[in-house]
Each structure stands twice: as C-alpha cells, then as structure tokens.
Simulated assay, not measured.
Amino acid sequence: MSTDYQQAREALGARLRELRLSASDGRLTGAQLAARYGWHKSKVSRMENGHQTPTPEDLRLWAEAVGQPEACNELLARLRGFESHIRSWRRQLAAGHRAVQDTHLSAHADAAVFRGWETSMIFGILQTPDYARAIFTRYAELQRSPRDTEEAVRSRMRRQQVLYDSSKRFHLLLWEAALHVLVCPPAVLAAQLDRLAGTIGLDTVELGIIPLSAPVKIPPSTAFWLYDDRQVVVENWHAELWIDDQASVDTYLRTWKTLRESAVYGTDAQNVINRARRTLSPWA
C-alpha cells in the first residue's frame, strides 16, 4: 500500500540492504545472513523490500552480522518512528476518500482474519451504497476534503467482495447504538439494517452485537480493526493510527475479546437489529 507507514518501512528495508552489501567482512548474501540465525530463507528479502517489519532483536542481529553494531541504535530509531504511525486525515484526504478506501482494500488483500469493533456506525465492509454515500458526504464536509463520493462508494463496494472469499474470516462486534444513529435519512438506515441482518449466517462473517442493556467489563470506546492479530487500525477525528508493535496489538486483542463477552449472536443479534428497524417504521 502506498502510505507514509509503508514508505517508512521500505526506507528501513533499503537501509538494511545497504548495510548488508557493505558488511565489514565483505559482501554478505541474504542466504548467508538467514542461515546464520536460522531464519526462513525469505525473511531477509521480505524485510529488505518492506514486506515484513523487523523486530528490535532482528535489527540487533543484523547490525552484528554486518559488523556494524553501532548502527543498531539508528535502526531502532527508524523502527520506533513507524511502529505507531499517525496518518492525518488532512494528508490522506488531500485527493479525496477513494485513496483511503483503496489503501484498506490492499490491507484486506494481505490478511485472512479480521476482528472489528465499531461504536457509532455500520462497518464499511457491510454498508449499502446509499449509507456509504451519506457517510462519505458527512466526513468530506467535516474534513473539508475534495468530494469524490461516487468513486469512494465504488471502492467501498469492491472492498466488500472479500466477504465472499472462503479464505477470509470476519469477526465483527457492533455497539447497538450504531443501529440508531441517523447520519442518513431514516429510509436509508432502514435499508442498511436490512442489509446488516442479511449478513447473519454468512459463513465468512461472525457478527456480534452488544445490546445497550448488556453489562460490560470495560466502557465501549474507540472503533478499531485488527488484521491477522498483528496490526491494528484505529480511527480518530484527526487521524488514523496504524499500529504493529506487538504489545499494543495484544492490548487491542484483549480489548476485543473482553467486549466480545457482552455480545449476542445469531437469533439474538437478529432480534436486536429488528428492534432497531421497527423504530424506523413510521419513516421507512
């Protein structure tokens, strides 16, 4: 994906390659470096090409292998610079919403297991075109970004194709309040709730809803996505946070699992959706 985060990871990879090719004992091949530490043969190339984020221990061993242990601090500083990377909406939306949607489309292509938590709107991957159109319009107004609503809607609809990919699994948690937020006309929300109810039973999707009346162990808070339990995407009003340091990822995973304890599934989830749908009957 073409993002500040990925560019920083690729820059770190280029620096690792530079160090390897200028090793103090002569040119060190990727195969030799991998063999020295018992790494998988593809690990060196994946790190050098920005396809895998090295751990601090990887960087220490790398600096040691190339005979430049003093380079370790530099490499660690680079790593810290993008482990928790903030991508401002102002920069991301400079060309409109479509580019952001395409970035998430790329992330979906690379992952197999997704865990999501949403508090205030329906997951993008489950939205109808009209509901998505309302969301993009509202956010474009807020962020004062270019209006590319139709292109963004088409990208979001393409993103939903992964719901029918048997190699993917989506474990989604939704706060019941999101079923009632009228960020769109009532008729649009009614159709959206019908669409949401239709995803229950889809073999790639596990949809849980936390009722407003359910006891919870922690306050329902900021929405986030977990990709393969190795990367987290958190949305705030000013930016997206793309986080992949393991300690932070583990915190979000524990948060998701704790929230899940309060969720209902299957017929019970369907009943919560239907109850929200009935409140819209006079208008939809």
Rank of each mutant, 00 (worst) to 15 (best):
Q160V: 01
D130I: 00
R133A: 10
H238R: 06
L172Q: 03
I209R: 01
D250H: 11
A214G: 08
H180C: 07
I218M: 05
T128V: 03
Q231G: 04
R230W: 00
P185H: 01
Q231T: 06
V205C: 03
V234G: 00
K257V: 00
H238C: 02
T222G: 03
T128I: 05
F170Q: 02
E176A: 03
A177G: 10
E206L: 14
T149E: 15
F170H: 06
S166E: 15
R158T: 08
P186Y: 04
T222C: 00
Y252W: 10
P215M: 10
L173W: 10
V233Y: 07
L202D: 04
G208D: 08
V205R: 03
Q246T: 14
R169L: 06
T204C: 12
A191L: 09
L253W: 11
A239S: 15
V181L: 05
S213H: 14
A239R: 02
P219F: 01
E235I: 13
T258K: 00
Q143V: 07
D250K: 03
D194V: 06
F170D: 05
A190S: 13
T222F: 00
L241T: 08
R138G: 08
T258N: 03
A132F: 13
Q246M: 04
L126V: 03
L259D: 01
W256H: 15
L189A: 06
A239Y: 12
T137N: 13
T255D: 03
R158L: 15
E235K: 05
A197S: 14
P220Y: 05
Q160S: 14
M157A: 14
L174D: 05
